[in-house]
Design a protein around this nucleic acid. Structure first.
Lengths: 194, 194
DNA sequence: CGAAAATTTGACATGACTCAACTGGAGTGG
DNA sequence: CCACTCCAGTTGAGTCATGTCAAATTTTCG
């Protein structure tokens, strides 16, 4: 059996699983490599897969009726990413996921997740904790969206997620902040004056 | 022992717990009644309590530097409510919770939650599922905030949460949508013309 | 009924958008 | 090494959605 340079156990580094359990988990995750620009999920697909980012950067976004993109989340190393409405409620995807850098992921199907929940209870604890932190972060994002102007949201973003800023184009940041690229450009100009 | 008209088992209606387990759970939840206008949580409090709304309506909101309120969530019957950043990361509260109607809740401390996770694994499944749905809803809320104008967000809100609309003042809705009460008033006027 | 709270209205200000044009850099090929 | 193209980012002028502030009106409730 060939040994990958990537290892499942890094995902569950806070849990000490036996070799045996690791093997079970390994058999239910699929390691994949996507080139920059590749779509991993499209609206109306079955959204029955979750992605764990090992390396690179993914973008989760919604395309509205006018064809405009709106970025919901970026995903870099050690983040999980999915259209949660589709994945959790077993409906078709309403969002898209694309690789905005060459990216290595582990994919896990909903079916395999259910199997793991049943056979390795710690997995449920792991995902419960991940969800708790992600949900708390989204509550804070809602507050930022409601209470800050575009300039403050931009500053908030680049200080909260400096690692993401390095990966993404300005037009991605604009789409995440809910502003146009032109506005972001003007904001950056104003900030650089001071 | 007096029998309350409220019952823990309604919370876990999808789980069939033994009488014994129900008793354990019951001993770890505190039934409380709050009058309209009461603060259940204030920023800088220990945010180590979660509220399950039995009846009434709660509002989770953030107060910014200028003293303005921004509503993160409303909670009506069968919803859980907390400052998740505080509750999950064991930090001080950054949000406030108030009763906007006379409200009956079950309170559960973080400590009691941990006890339950350890002794009744189904509880972890219950909260994992609740979190999944709540997180998916927040992903959709982010999309709405990014892609819709104020009028569409208002229509979206009142059709998605008609039960909440009945409970809350227009200025609460405005604060949830991220607009002023004056703007909401004008939006309602325009919509009523058609 | 009367006071306080909530909502509406008007006049004006402003932050962000739109559209179009322009700049600059990265790559490509002759 | 230059010319060309493509993509990302910037700039300018005008517009629009929403905010601000003050006042009027309506609703709620003791």
């Amino acid at each position: 059996m060939s040994k990958s340079i990537y290892n499942i156990s890094q995902i569950f580094k806070n849990f000490s699983f036996s070799e045996e359990k690791i093997k079970v988990i390994e058999s239910l995750f699929t390691l994949k490599q996507y080139n920059k620009g590749t779509q991993l999920l499209n609206a109306n697909d079955e959204g029955d897969v979750q992605f764990y980012v090992v390396k690179g950067c993914l973008r989760l976004y919604h395309t509205d009726d006018l064809g405009k993109d709106h970025t919901v989340q970026f995903g870099i190393a050690d983040w999980w990413m999915s259209d949660c409405t589709a994945f959790f409620t077993e409906t078709k995807a309403i969002m898209n996921i694309e690789a905005i850098k060459d990216t290595v992921v582990y994919e896990m199907s909903r079916q395999n997740r259910d199997y793991l929940y049943e056979h390795i209870p710690e997995i449920e604890t792991y995902f419960r904790q991940k969800l708790e932190l992600a949900f708390a972060a989204f509550q804070r994002r809602i507050i930022a969206n409601l209470s800050q102007n575009a300039s403050d949201r931009y500053l908030n973003f680049i200080t909260t997620y400096p690692d993401i800023e390095k990966c993404v184009k300005n037009y991605h940041i604009a789409s995440y902040l809910g502003i146009t690229t032109e506005s972001l450009s003007r904001i950056r100009k104003d900030l650089s004056k001071q």
